[in-house]
Design a protein around this nucleic acid. Sequence first.
RNA 1: GGUCGCGUAGCUCAGGGGAUAGAGCAACUGCCUUCUAAGCAGUCGGUCGCACGUUCGAUUCGUGCCGCGAUCACCA
Length: 589
Amino acid sequence: MNIFETIQQQVQQAFPILFGNEIELNKITINETLKEFEGDVTLVVFPLLKLTQKKPEETATIIGEYLVKTNNNIASFNVIKGFLNLVLKDDFWVDFITKNQSNAITSKSATILIEYSSPNTNKPIHLGHVRNNVLGYALAGIFKANGYPTFKANLINDRGIHICKSMLAWQKFGNGETPESSNMKGDKLVGKYYVEFDKHYKAEIEALIQTGKTKEEAEKQAPILLEAHAMLLKWENGNAEIVELWRKMNAWVYAGFDITYKNLGVDFDKYYYESNTYLLGKDMVEDGLKKGVFYKKENGSVWIDLSSDGLDEKLVLRADGTSVYITQDIGTADLKYNDFHMSRSIYVVGNEQDYHFKVLKLILQKLGRPYADGIQHYSYGMVDLPSGRMKSREGTVVDADDLMDDMIAAAKEQTEALGKIEDFNEEEKQALFKTIGLGALKFFLLRVDPKKRILFDPKESIDLHGYTGPFVQYTYARTRSIWRKYQETQQATNAIATYTLHPAEKELIKVLYNYPIVLAESCKEMNPAKVVDYAYELAKTFNKFYNECSILAAEKTEEKAFRMQLNQRTGNTIKTCFAIVGIEVPERM
RNA sequence: GGUCGCGUAGCUCAGGGGAUAGAGCAACUGCCUUCUAAGCAGUCGGUCGCACGUUCGAUUCGUGCCGCGAUCACCA
């Protein structure tokens, strides 16, 4: 229990004695004291007045006197308007550091499965997917750090009409081009043909409109689209030639994805392939038909009516018997549960699919699946460009590989200009540039509330100063540098009898003290931005301390020893925070 | 049109019933013979979209309106 909770409970317990009334715990508002006032912990007394039947100042004074008397961590109090400010003894903060107290995380039994990344094999990974990957990885890290058995799954969307589109375009216009012959990453090559398909498709629509068809008719009747549908049917019927083509092109894409994932530093415990799960979904649709959850239309297509739940009718199987997106998701859901028996199944997917996941959850609930209530769509905002949305089909995307290269190049330029790493060998240099470049990129994507959309302007490169990853990394490297120097000198003893804290020391300790609180909050709210923001605040506070208090040149030996402990604690906490969300930290920069 | 999300400093974002609304960027000023200046300190910058309501107290909660976005496909 932390000091805020302790005081809150203490007040609750003493309340009947002091005022003759019981009080609910949530009426007792405890905050950190604002910096401009004297004190560490603040109790807001306004909500208590009805129960105390006394004026704010009087109420605050009674509680303040009681707490100073009974809680030996509290040194004194002051009352300003309706606020009771409690000053904690320096010993409380000093002990927190020297006794290296930290609230051990209790391990939980509820298993968490996080599905993220889930790429389509018809196009390369772009900045929007990077946000997904970085968020998913960070979220899993946060659950793990809070003691949950957590697993990461990647559902590869490797079949369907969109895959057939790139296959068809390659077959028609590719002239046998391969990643080797074109010297392109496999995912890029396949993506090129996805764009190629769209170009021809649009041209055909235009031509049909010229012949007097409506836009809607034209979109449905374009020959190349009909061909793609025919190819999908062949694929589902196991046509050898098509399946062979599909295998070949998917293998190209996976080779490309592996490189991107490795550079991004994300990983997965389990891969699922929709080519293996879509049939399962079809079986479940049959089952649902029998149960009366679904119904069949005259043309043979299968639907669910969700109008009583405030949604629309939704197609779950096409008239030609092929699966749609949701059919596959229904099937995969069952498979995941059989593998993990998770209590929570989290899908990291953009907010453009809010409706889809509402429908998915409802369908699984109606089918009576035991895991349905534990399904949660982790919905995050899109990454938009100043020109609008990124669209792979139209080629208006910021490519993930290019972006990482750009970030690393920016880190290199900046680092070399500062000239601090001349003694690094080439390998060490490359590793550092990557650490910094990716740190900047990931921090940029994580610092924003996941729900909100991000505006990314490719013309303005991501900053390396201020509220950024490299700022925090730099602070870590600084603590390591001090530690190395400290080890070279003769080391002070650890014994501290009494110690009066410098304001900058106290401020830093308070931030360090909040680490477990922030970690728990970030998990409860599923918000990696909290962790990243905390790491920044910690770095910022440390830098202030560093500027005001000399560590290695401290006057007294116990001062030096104590400050070294602050240095180490800060470094470790930064490193841990960043590791949780998937950002590396350099020993020197 | 229905549903969902978002409107906070010039820009990018925090805060989420409680004290004088915070950071970073941009602009300007100081601070390296002293532990890493990718830093620190400071100046400038706000009717928290608008209105009403609930409350001792609203930027925060509720309702309505305005603006932006997403979604409501035999696309994924």
